[in-house]
Design a protein around this nucleic acid. Structure first.
Length: 932
RNA sequence: GCUCGGGUGGUGGAAUUGGUAGACACGCUGGACUUAAAAUCCAGUGGACAUUGCGUCCGUGCGGGUUCAAGUCCCGCCCCGAGUACCA
């Protein structure tokens, strides 16, 4: 009988859904295993064959772990808030709630077709009020906490206020804004409520501040650093400029060190850890203070090369710095102001593209703390305001940028290196540095000079050790509609959290949700004010100064909901807490997390930050939420191109002339032939076109590997593959394609191999059209094949090496086919073994074998060594390292005996002739080496 | 520039971590079945020489080294991919 995948797959998908086969239990004594996929954005384009790759891998592990006796949590949901969903809605002119719902339906239908073992009873959407209630609640928790450096954890802000009350902030060691001034308890007590709040917001983990942000005019919103790629928005590729705005931010910097250290204890890929390390960008150095004439405050610079301090011949400040105008001399003022204006007008791309050094002199001089010389202070836009202190000491001899700047503006260059030629460029080799012309640092290496100069600077109060992080606080406001409302209202201009018991504060229903005249969409909501007395959202018209106040108009960014969602699955329907204590103590953390590497500096960093915060406030038991992370590679598409010569003439795209245009790959077969008739029929654009074929009447396209996307016409739909070959073939083929973590182009070229494997496997159960298995004892060869397979498959799944695992199955079935094996004792365990890969196929055969319980409830077959043990072993024999022949010897033969046997052989004598071997090396189980 | 990956047949990729390189699959070639095609099955398939034998030699980006033995380890290059970048 034929392997009818269509019928089988429908049947078992219905069975699983009706019986809740994959529902995970919270109340159990079984060991747990939590496998998580990064939940999808339900975009309008639906799934393409690249999306399920990670889901298939995680599903294999989930199903495998169930067989191994674990209580497996394998949930799925939707990250349905955020810019992409909203942009899609704007483009299609529909409300995001509606398009999101439709897209989710499509996703669900496509996912179901592939036969995933998700526990859908735990599904949620980040855009659902019952979910974002908790996102808002965590936001308020962040707002109500500060980071105490002494205890190295978040503590309630109310405690901090008490300390201020008693002793001011003199002894407080907390993470806060750089510009926070010191005050005494007496001063604190005199501050107004508003002033107090302003100070506290310098400590809160989420805070409101005027800051330079990435503004995207086209999207009408600000963006976080990781949402800006190459100076344009990640979403849509629109230009991004700097703008000063009052924004909510997250003080992720407080956790920089812990985010760095935490990487040590999690099993994530080296490359991903490296990306996060670079993004956090820890650098150790020294802050040096330079006194400025007529100014109270010194200028602080950050440097990692304090050893070169005697080479510092001028200072450079970032033009954006407030102090610039304070120190600028009257003579230079006009020029400086012009330069600042010019810098502001530059976009990020322009600033990055322009590597030519520009700058102006401020007219001010600083005093070198060690030489007491006067050195000029300049401003230049190559010094960044938001890194370090925004000021540097320029050491032209030791830094290429400073060198170029000094050359251009004819500033002094002082060589403080022994035996270094700086006539052409700066000397930057830290390792080979020998200091000269530097008073007490002469003849010292980088390391020694560093230490001594730091001590000196500290002793005269002109410097201190400083650790800098590149990681900057994350902007948390978005001037968009489709996001979680920020649960804050403004009571007399003071941001005040909404009472937690009143959450969720739901997104108001709006007809028009597009941003207008630079104002966020919620500014147009009619009912968006907080009635403090009645504790409810009311009409904006009621805003007065007594009990009704405006609510925050910005919404949260897309990554808010995804920063804690993995905890929600543990207890998805809990209405009292975001996760119940019992549930979170049982499931604890994700054992295996699979998703794309593109989230390295976004979601994967923010979520680690939130988890650490939730850990600090004792809501979760672990501070790293994912033990192991695998980044599945991207599946790329093979776009097809033809050449358009003129309006109606097209030729194969392998010439230089004409215009290359895309054609949808559904009209192209595996040998790059274009189906002209179908193309003309379905695509009016080509209706009248004339295609010039080759001598055999064929028309070929040119291929190019690119990211798969709808606009590139290179998308392959998993539904089509399921229809043609079945979900089980799709699952196995995607795994067979190559190592999970590797990116690879999709090609259906090899899919028939996997499909015919399943057909061959199926055939073992049939004698003609009748299902028939043999109950007799299997032969030892069959048992050997089976156990070899069990061993390898178990090993491969444990090591996430799914491609070789598929090969193992193929070898097994090839061997069994050759042995004409149809023995129940062999086939039954194999059916269980293949279930993670081909679940429908497996269920059907398991059922046909006479079992009524789902195969997913059956234990994995156990490998038994005894079936593999052989009495003899083949030893390759080599002479002087060259392999000559193999010798089969009993396994238990002692080494000396083996040596003797080998030397007695005719072949050995022939090769050795009259020579006596120097030594004979027997590596047990491996090889015999004769050296002469 | 810096950091991290990687380079193996015509193609995707294996290689139990130093032990017979190229598993498995695709593709290709030939054969069987068929009026024919599809499907299925069988055989061959890294290169060179030899194919009346067995075979022999060369082969994992390039050049050296360690070792009885190197795709795997060490040193020096070349190339490809990813991340990041006036980060002081």
């Amino acid at each position: 009988m034929k392997y009818n995948f269509e019928e089988i797959e429908q049947k078992w998908q219905a069975y699983w859904s009706e019986n809740g086969t994959f529902k995970a239990e919270n109340d159990t004594t079984l060991p747990k295993y939590y496998v998580l996929d990064m939940f999808p954005y339900p975009s309008g384009a639906g799934l393409h064959v690249g999306h399920p790759l990670g889901y298939i891998a995680s599903d294999i592990v989930a199903r495998y772990k169930r067989h191994k006796g674990f209580n497996v949590l394998h949930p799925q949901g939707y990250d349905s808030f955020g810019l992409p969903a909203e942009q899609y809605a704007v483009q299609t002119g529909q409300h995001p709630a509606k398009t999101t719902e439709e897209n989710i339906q499509t996703y669900r239908r496509q996912l179901d077709k592939i036969g995933f073992s998700f526990d859908w009873s735990r599904e949620f959407r980040t855009s659902d009020p019952s979910y974002y209630k908790w996102t808002q609640s965590i936001f308020i928790d962040l707002f109500n906490h500060y980071y105490c450096k002494n205890e190295d954890k978040a503590l309630p802000i109310s405690q901090l206020a008490q300390i201020f009350e008693k002793e001011g902030n003199v002894n407080v060691n907390a993470y806060c804004d750089e510009d926070t001034d010191l005050f005494t308890e007496a001063e604190w007590q005199k501050y107004s409520q508003e002033e107090k709040e302003q100070i506290l917001s310098k400590y809160r983990l989420t805070y409101l501040s005027d800051s330079e942000v990435n503004w995207c005019e086209e999207l009408g919103t600000v963006l976080a650093n990781d949402e800006v790629v190459d100076g344009v928005s990640e979403r849509g590729g629109y230009p991004v400029t700097k703008k000063k705005m009052r924004q909510w931010s997250m003080r992720i910097g407080a956790y920089a060190e812990r985010l760095l250290n935490g990487l040590e204890k999690i099993d994530w890929s080296d490359s991903l850890k490296e990306i996060q390390r670079n993004w956090i960008g820890k650098s150790e150095g020294v802050e040096v203070h330079f006194q400025v004439k007529n100014a109270e405050e010194p200028i602080c610079v950050f440097t990692t090369r304090p050893d070169t301090i005697f080479g510092a011949t001028f200072l450079i400040l970032a033009p954006e710095l407030d102090t610039v105008l304070d120190i600028t001399s009257e003579a230079q003022r006009q020029e400086v102001e012009n330069y600042i204006q010019k810098t502001k007008a530059k976009s990020d791309i322009e600033r990055q593209a322009d590597t030519n050094k520009t700058g102006v002199f401020t007219g001010a001089y600083a005093v070198h703390p060690l030489t007491k010389e006067q050195i000029p202070i300049w401003i230049s836009d190559y010094v960044l305001a938001n890194y370090g202190t925004g000021a540097v000491m320029a050491v032209p001899c030791g830094d290429q940028r400073d060198y170029e700047f000094a050359k251009k503006f004819d500033l002094p260059i002082k060589n403080i290196f022994k035996n270094a030629d700086i006539s052409e460029k700066a000397f930057v080799d830290k390792g080979n540095t020998v200091i000269a012309h530097s008073q007490f640092l002469n003849d010292l290496s980088y390391k020694d000079a560093y230490k001594i100069v730091l001590e000196k600077l500290e002793s005269i109060g002109a410097g201190r050790k400083k650790i800098n992080y590149r990681l900057r606080d994350a902007v948390f406001s978005r001037q968009r509609y489709w996001g979680e409302p920020i649960p804050i209202y403004y009571k007399n201009n003071t941001p005040t959290p909404l009472p937690k018991e009143c959450l969720p504060v739901a997104l108001p229903e709006m007809e028009d949700y597009k941003p207008k005249n630079g104002k966020p969409p919620l500014a147009n909501a009619s009912d968006w004010a907080w009635d403090e007395q009645n504790k409810k959202v009311v009409s904006c018209k009621l805003i007065d100064n007594k009990t009704v106040f405006p609510i925050e108009l910005d919404t949260m960014p897309g990554w808010a909901g995804s920063s804690w969602y993995f905890n929600r699955y543990m207890d998805a329907t809990n209405e009292k807490e975001f996760v119940g204590e019992e549930a979170v103590n049982y499931w604890r953390e994700v054992d295996l997390y699979i998703g794309g590497v593109e989230h390295a500096t976004g979601h994967l960093l923010y979520s680690r930050f939130w988890q650490k915060f939730l850990y600090d406030i004792a809501k979760v038991p672990v501070d790293e939420y994912a033990k192991k992370l695998i980044n599945q590679g991207m599946i790329l598409g093979e776009s097809a191109f033809i050449t358009k010569l003129n309006e109606e003439k097209y030729i194969s795209a392998n010439t230089e002339e004409g215009v290359k245009i895309r054609v949808d790959i559904k009209y192209v077969n595996a040998s790059n032939e274009l189906d002209i008739n179908k193309l003309k029929e379905e695509n009016t654009y080509f209706k009248k076109a004339n295609f010039e074929c080759d001598a055999n009447g064929k028309f070929y396209v040119e291929r190019e590997v690119e990211k798969m996307s709808k606009s590139k016409l290179n998308v392959l739909n998993p539904d089509d593959i399921c229809e043609q070959y079945g979900a089980d073939t799709l699952r196995m083929y995607e795994m067979f394609l190559g190592p999970l973590e590797q990116s690879k182009p999709w090609s259906t070229a090899g899919i028939t191999g996997v499909h015919s494997f399943l057909k061959k496997f199926w055939k073992l159960f049939y004698n003609g059209d009748t299902f028939s298995v043999n109950d007799a004892e299997p032969s030892s060869e069959m048992l050997k094949t089976l156990h070899k397979t069990i061993k390898k498959v178990t090993f491969d799944i444990e090591n996430f090496s799914f491609n070789t695992c598929v090969s193992t199955f193929m070898i097994c079935i090839n061997e069994l086919t050759a042995l004409k094996c149809n023995h129940r004792a062999i086939l039954e365990p194999l059916v269980v073994l293949i279930e993670p890969f081909a679940p429908h196929f497996s269920e059907e055969l398991w059922n046909k074998l006479g079992h009524s319980v789902s195969v997913s409830k059956i234990s994995f077959p156990i490998f038994e060594e005894k079936y593999l043990v052989e009495s003899t072993k083949k030893y390759p024999i080599s002479f002087n390292g060259k392999m000559r022949f193999t010798l089969e010897l009993p396994l238990d033969l002692p080494v000396q005996e083996i040596e003797k046997k080998v030397l007695e052989l005719e072949e050995t004598k022939k090769i050795l002739q009259d020579k006596t071997p120097k030594k004979v090396i027997v590596v047990p189980q491996k090889i015999i080496n004769i050296v002469f």
